[in-house]
Write a protein that binds this DNA or RNA. Structure first.
Length: 794
DNA sequence: GAATGGCCCGGCTGC
DNA sequence: CGGGCCATTC
């Protein structure tokens, strides 16, 4: 329960339970809840006109402030809901905000514009597609699609991919787009790299020809509309769209403003150019997307751009214990440039932060398992627990450890479902049906499943199409009359058959529900039967994934209907591309594993922060990090720590196998920043073994490691405790439930067994040694040959 | 001309 | 560990 004065707009007594479908009315009708807002929160809610900057410290209730502010505008200020735009960082956050507002305001909340930058701009562009030389059925190209486009452009220009690596060229293009600069921007005149400019121009043309946008284009496109001018030769379509857009909203609110980039900020300025009712909320200490173009100077410099802006700081943290808040502040403190603010909490001291030294990544995973079990014993539900890491590559070992002891978990991000080959294939079909000009998709499916149209033929038809500034689909339509297409009669015939396949699919898909289109594509393209014919376990898994794809279409249909929208294939495809990792998070009773980046905006009772080692977190490759990069790593660590409500466990390993090599690691410098009175240091027996025995440590290479280990967590903690009993290998075994194997009897292939050291495993092979033995796979350890007498039934 | 298997290089974070 | 490229085989 929040304490503090409720002021002005927020003095209301309506009961929360009465929230429901109600018309608009005074705020007293609205269940703005018994919630009492503290003075700065109330001020941020009640301040109505003009620019408003809210510095919202971690856990200071900023989502609540935005939500209430919107409710206040609608209920008390008489603002029409469709004239309010709220920009959130994820689709999930948008959905939650919308749901909350519907509770407070009733069904009128459906008319609010709530969404991410990308989703909102996509919506604008579908309203005014002509203004950007696209049609309404445009598709959005994700990074791999973009890479395909730029690779092709570079090849067409005869640029070799060693001097012009597609990834880097693409990165340069994105950087320019984030600044709103096209290939013919005057600022590029001094750019001496003409081939690069050509590649950029060609990339843009290719996207336009494909009736496609990349992520940046969605924002840039809307800004272009808003900056259209009759003098600048813009079309009447563009001018009409401009007029509609710039007067569309009375109020614009932006969450996580610290992670906006230059073009997004420009968009916001343009959308509010007449009203100046721009409310931005964020925390410069939590700016973690610099590498993606985010510019923390947007929030730090907001007052310069809007000298009359009202500035409010929310500094009371309601989320975390005192120890967690103090540690977070200690981690962020060394950062050089920060907006001054004092985060504080009146919450309890809480339990000490456990810092655990593990021997290696598996030992660390075992610590994680142990901590999760302890938490479960203490009554913390699994959904209240999260495991964080800096890079996805760390997740596998953690995953195996959890699986081996049957702790349900979900992984956010990582190997993404929609990036699986079979899913991408089918999505490519669907996108072609929606937008046949999409060459990237056409190239993907033209010979998938194999239908005798090989690389050479594809290359030739693509070359002819590009020579005529046409798409492959258009070239195929003219197949019989194409001059300069030198393919034999057989491939030509197959191309014709493919064209008929696509035309047939397009004709039959009209009027069908998205899931029905999917089923039809699977059948008629021959994709399903090709997979079935393979008759392998892998093909079966792919078929299952495709079934799951159909499932996700149903989920989408339900969501769309909740928003009052008609489910369409376009809508589904857009959702697939613009979905953020956390959007698909399950509410089920599972432990959540994710990167710290994904964790932004979330909170958990128990957070396990793993891999706190120099070179992992702060992450660095060869080059030492620059100041800016180091500051960002620090902010990322701050985000990680501030996700925890009650308990925080921080682990680091002394050696880590990652990216194919084993490295000796020293504890992260950020660990050294934790205040001594907040932490409690532990060490696993295996880690201590390394320190004391140093058996397999070559000190001549390793003296840094030893020195840093004694120095880095400089806080002399209370006594160092054992994280585990000696001899316990941390993979827990339910001893009572298992029975030993007899000496004579060997477990059969495929049976599950328990080993005192390696835990649960599966028998792969029975081997003949002097004693009965098997080769078994133990998650987290790999394949091991073990004697049967050490095994128990699982 | 198409399909498949091996090999080498590069590898973060993500709308 | 995976994707892209090349060599080999059909």
């Amino acid at each position: 329960m929040w304490r503090g004065h409720a002021r002005s707009a927020c003095e209301t007594k309506a009961g929360e339970g009465e929230a429901g479908d109600r018309g608009m009315g005074g705020l007293n009708d609205v269940s703005m809840a018994q919630s009492e807002l503290n003075p700065p929160q109330a001020e941020a809610v009640a301040y109505v006109h003009g620019p408003l900057l809210v510095f919202a410290g971690a856990g200071s209730g900023k989502t609540r402030v935005i939500t209430y502010r919107i409710a206040n505008l609608v209920a008390n200020e008489g603002v029409m809901p469709w004239r309010i735009l709220a920009v959130t960082f994820t689709n999930k956050a948008a959905g939650e905000m919308r749901a909350r507002l519907e509770e407070m305001l009733g069904s009128v909340a459906r008319d609010l514009w709530v969404g991410t930058f990308h989703a909102t701009c996509a919506k604008f562009l579908r309203l005014y597609p002509e203004a950007t030389s696209r049609s309404k059925n445009f598709v959005i190209y994700d990074s791999s699609d973009q890479k395909a486009v730029i690779t092709r452009a570079l090849r067409d220009l005869g640029l070799d991919d060693r001097s012009y690596p597609p990834k880097q060229v693409l990165a340069r293009i994105h950087k320019l787009k984030q600044e709103g600069r096209g290939p013919h921007d005057p600022s590029l005149d001094k750019e001496r790299d003409k081939p690069f400019k050509d590649a950029y121009a060609r990339y843009e043309l290719a996207l336009q020809a494909a009736n496609a946008f990349d992520f940046e284009d969605l924002i840039v496109g809307v800004v272009r509309i808003l900056e259209a001018s009759a003098d600048g030769g813009d079309s009447t379509d563009a001018l009409r769209a401009k007029e509609a857009l710039e007067s569309k909203f009375d109020f614009v609110l932006v969450d996580e403003f610290q992670d906006t980039n230059a073009i997004q900020y420009r968009l916001l300025k343009r959308l509010t150019s007449t009203t100046r009712n721009l409310c931005v909320v964020g925390d410069d200490d939590q700016s973690i997307y610099r590498w993606r173009g985010a510019d923390v100077r947007n929030i730090r410099g907001f007052r310069r751009d809007y000298p009359d802006a009202k500035v409010i700081k929310l500094e009371q943290n309601y989320r975390s214990t005192k120890r967690i808040v103090a540690s977070a502040l200690a981690v962020i403190a060394p950062s050089r440039t920060r907006e001054p603010k004092e985060l504080w909490t009146s919450n309890v001291d809480g339990s000490p932060i456990r810092v655990i030294a593990a021997a290696d990544e598996r030992d660390e995973a075992a610590c994680v398992v142990r901590a999760i079990r302890d938490a479960a014993d203490a009554g913390i539900a699994r959904r209240e627990i999260a495991v964080f890491y800096r890079v996805h590559a760390q997740s596998r070992v953690l995953e195996e450890a959890l699986r081996s002891v049957n702790i349900p978990y979900q992984i956010i991000g990582g190997a993404k479902f929609y990036e699986r080959a079979e899913v991408k294939d089918i999505i490519a079909y669907l996108r072609v049906l929606v937008n046949p000009k999409s060459d990237v998709d056409m190239m993907r499916i033209i010979n998938t499943p194999a239908r005798g149209i090989g690389a050479t033929t594809v290359e030739r038809i693509a070359a002819v199409a590009s020579m005529r500034h046409a798409s492959i689909f258009e070239a195929l339509a003219n197949l019989e009359h194409l001059e300069g297409l030198s393919v034999g009669t057989a491939p030509r015939k197959r191309l014709g058959q493919f064209r008929e396949l696509i035309n047939g699919l397009i004709a039959e898909s009209t009027g069908l529900a998205p899931a029905e289109v999917l089923r039809m594509v699977l059948e008629k393209s021959g994709y399903r039967s090709a997979l079935k014919d393979e008759n392998t376990a892998e093909a079966d898994a792919r078929l299952e994934n495709l079934a799951e794809l159909e499932g996700s279409m149903h989920d989408y249909a339900v969501e769309a209907e909740a928003r009052g929208e008609e489910p369409t294939l376009e809508g589904f495809l857009e959702r697939v591309t613009l979905q953020s990792d956390t959007d698909s998070m399950s509410e089920a009773s599972k432990v959540t594993l994710m990167t710290v980046h994904s964790a932004k905006g979330l909170e958990y009772r128990l957070v396990l922060l793993t891999g706190m080692e120099e070179s992992i977190f702060p992450y660095r490759r060869q080059e030492p990090l620059g100041h800016e990069e180091m500051d960002e790593e620090r902010r990322l660590a701050y985000v990680a720590v501030t996700r925890a409500r009650e308990h925080l466990v921080v682990t680091h390993a002394k050696a880590r196998q990652i990216f194919g090599t084993t490295r000796l690691e020293v504890p992260s410098r950020f660990l050294g920043d934790f205040p001594a009175h907040c932490i409690e240091q532990h060490e696993t027996p295996a880690a201590r073994g390394l320190r004391e025995g140093g058996r397999w440590i070559d000190r001549s290479i390793n003296h840094d490691f030893v020195r840093d280990w004694t120095r880095a967590p400089k806080a002399a903690a209370p006594a160092v405790h054992d994280a585990h009993d000696p001899g316990d290998r941390y993979i827990e075994i339910d001893a009572e439930a298992s029975q030993p194997y007899d000496d004579v009897e060997s477990p059969a292939r495929g049976t599950n067994v328990l080993h005192p050291k390696f835990g649960r495993g599966e028998v792969l092979n029975v081997v003949h040694a002097s004693e009965p033995a098997v080769v078994a796979f133990f998650p987290g350890w790999g394949e091991k040959k073990v004697l049967v007498k050490f095994l128990k039934r699982a």
